[in-house]
Design a protein around this nucleic acid. Structure first.
Lengths: 159, 159
DNA sequence: ATCTCTCGTGCAAGTTTGTTTCGTTGATTG
DNA sequence: CAATCAACGAAACAAACTTGCACGAGAGAT
């Protein structure tokens, strides 16, 4: 089995390694190697390359928000004003800077952005809406969905 | 500084450790210790406990979906039929089992579920809608938002 | 076909990190 | 005040990571 000439291409070994690490990144390289039939150094070189190339974005500890005082997950749909053309990047930047906004998607359809916000209580969310939504003249309106249950919050992909 | 008598409570050391690990879980315990003013064994004991107690859900490699052949992120809003009361758990189970569904939130408001789906192309998404949405008689309707840009897909919390 | 260049590999040695042990300290309680 | 308990750090130890090196397979050129 051989690697493509493009360094950014992944072969079946790389995918097998990713399948393991996206479920548990603490798995020792030796054990990963055993599962994919590769030596530990080889596994390490592949991981290093995938980190360098951005295939692996980060290795992170995923924290349960309810256990650190952030029991409220809120999904927000944002609709911009029609004439808001060149200000998209500006709005994205605003959302990127807000630590309460965990995820932000720029979407097609009836709305323009979908946000996932994680806060400690409704007061904090109200404060956020004042700072980021009501005071932003490019936002026509927004809709709030309070989540009752975080049924599934995976980080792994179907690879 | 002391720990509460409840083993599941977190003190400021624990939070400091989490702040580091949720951004980079490969940080050596020794280095974490230096940053929070604790010895490496102490850091380790706290990490172990937080893993055991579920404060740290998993440590995972976060993979860029576009780099592994999954360039399409789709957000789906699902509205159930009114009489669908006791079948919520059944529907949740369906979503939990589907590997293309990365996230699922059960929400209040105009819709009942918000899903984040990651697939390779529209054909795969259409297939998913047939299998999970159209064939499910508890679903009244669903709305699809195709994302143009994954502006922010953090896993870290504002702690 | 043969040569050569490149790339990835495994092994082994060396380095760093993670883990366990053990004695001490400080706070709490009887 | 003594006993108890929980958490700590230093040191010893085990495991994992990292690096250097030589080998072998595949690609391209002659």
């Amino acid at each position: 089995m051989s690697r493509s000439t493009f360094s950014s291409e992944l072969d079946s070994f790389d995918l097998a390694i990713l399948r393991i690490l996206q479920n548990d990144s603490t798995t020792p390289q030796r054990e990963v190697g055993e599962q994919v039939n590769l030596s530990a150094p080889s596994v390490q070189r592949r991981i290093k390359r995938m980190q360098r190339d951005g295939v692996i974005a980060v290795q992170a500890a995923i924290v349960d928000p309810a256990r650190v005082g952030l029991p409220l997950t809120i999904i927000v749909e944002i609709e911009l004003k029609a004439e808001t053309g060149g200000k998209i990047d500006e709005i994205k930047e605003t959302f990127l800077e807000a630590p309460e906004i965990q995820q932000c998607y720029y979407v097609t359809g009836e709305v323009d952005f979908v946000l996932i916000v994680i806060v400690s209580d409704m007061a904090e969310y109200e404060d956020l809406t004042q700072r980021l939504f009501f005071s932003n003249h490019n936002i026509r309106k927004f809709k709030t969905f309070v989540t009752m249950d975080r049924t599934k919050t995976n980080t792994s992909l179907n690879i």
